[in-house]
Design a protein around this nucleic acid. Structure first.
Lengths: 238, 238
DNA sequence: CGGGGCGCTTGCGGTGGCGCAAAGACCGCT
DNA sequence: AGCGGTCTTTGCGCCACCGCAAGCGCCCCG
């Protein structure tokens, strides 16, 4: 059984920023909690959008599939983030799959409840605008990267984004805090798992990263930044 | 001197859909008309966003420049479309350059006026959300294309989009209704002007397009669709 | 504890598309 | 009419990256 919803979880969400305690309670009352096991699909591309979603715990991967089956990873969702809301504001169909990449707990709002909330609390619409605007910027930046940069730089950028977004300090450096395969990285950067594997191997031999099965630790973030920014390589210590 | 603003021009704009005549008049009163000659910059990437913009007449190119000077064409704006509004909803800095690709007339709203309008007429915020949402979808699709498709298909897709968005019927087929260089197409598709030139030459010899200096006419749109969708080539008539 | 599957690595050959370079075409300006 | 600049075309060589294929290792499940 899902845990009882707790208004506190909404407090940190940008979508509900600036809302009073009573409004938050109202929002929670309309939401439905749900659990998903790792590997489960929370929703599927093309399906009518039943609801808007917020992740409470776990990790979700948003994947868009092209007409010929080519997959692209649009983003990874962490606790506190909204997802699957775009459909509500546009044509009502989910534009991508959402897959649990670790066991998850989510809240979801039926489309009607969501629009009702936005009508009663205009701040929410303003917040949504700024969130969607920020995502648009981000996707534009990725588009520029994929269109103009070489593979190695793109992989470096992708890893750095993941570190910023889901990095966890460990003794060896910073670890990306969820299962991440070469295939995933390939689908984030528009390349193949082979090239990703080769690139990570090269970096591993330079001591920049440490990686294994669905797991990546960055040992020298500054070296990765140098690659991403196309600066001269970090000189060996001496 | 700019022409006197006419409330009618706002009527067709999605941003102001659902607004009453008085509200439209109010919006027009806050706007400032301006002319720009071909080649002029309407605003520049990184500059604080003084205003939101709507194009009345002409054509504007939105170009994002990367840290190393690589350029990417984000979109082309036609009459009736809004642009440069993203900055107002996010961090207040224009994320790209806007360049007049033909002589232009635009309306612009000072940032303060724009937010004031949105406060008084919540419909505008809703409209904005759906517009920005639609653009996010579109950019995501382009990202998928650039990440997974070969150059020829990307160029075909780009031209088809331009046809849909700014196509004009002429005797020979459909013409893209503004000056468009190979360089522009290259920056839309993440390739080089050389490759675009070669591709167009090949298509020209197959009778699919006709093109010259900053000008493209599509003679066989269906053949271009076949290339874009990676279908077998259209068989020769017989 | 043993087997199967999934994820990862790595070599090898092919090639799509880039980068350079030079020349041709067209436009607009004086 | 002449001229300079911008846009375009096209050849050539190269290289980053892909695609295939084989093999390995770890994890999970029975």
């Amino acid at each position: 059984m899902p845990p009882p919803p707790d208004p506190a979880v909404l407090r940190g969400m940008p979508l509900f920023a600036g809302l009073g305690a009573d409004a938050l309670a109202e929002a929670v009352a309309l939401a439905r909690p749900r659990r998903h096991a790792r590997g489960a699909a929370l929703f599927t591309q093309g399906e009518p959008a039943a609801a808007g979603h917020a992740l409470i715990d776990g990790r979700v991967k948003i994947v868009q599939t092209g007409p010929d089956g080519q997959q692209v990873v649009m983003r990874f969702i962490g606790p506190g983030e909204m997802f699957g809301t775009l459909a509500i504001f546009t044509d009502g169909l989910y534009p991508a799959d959402a897959v649990a990449v670790a066991d998850c707990v989510e809240l979801s709002w039926p489309a009607a409840g969501m629009t009702e909330l936005m009508d009663r609390h205009p701040v929410i619409a303003r917040n949504a605008l700024s969130i969607v605007g920020g995502r648009l910027r981000e996707v534009q930046n990725r588009l520029r990267e994929v269109a103009t940069e070489r593979v190695e730089r793109r992989i470096a950028h992708a890893l750095l984004r993941l570190v910023r977004h889901a990095g966890r300090r460990v003794e060896a450096g910073v670890e990306i805090d969820f299962p991440l395969s070469r295939q995933d990285v390939a689908e984030m950067t528009g390349t193949t798992l082979h090239t990703v594997s080769r690139t990570l191997s090269a970096w591993e031999s330079q001591g920049i990263v440490e990686s294994g099965r669905q797991q990546v630790v960055i040992r020298k973030p500054h070296a990765l930044v140098a690659i991403a920014e196309d600066l001269p390589p970090v000189p060996p210590r001496g």
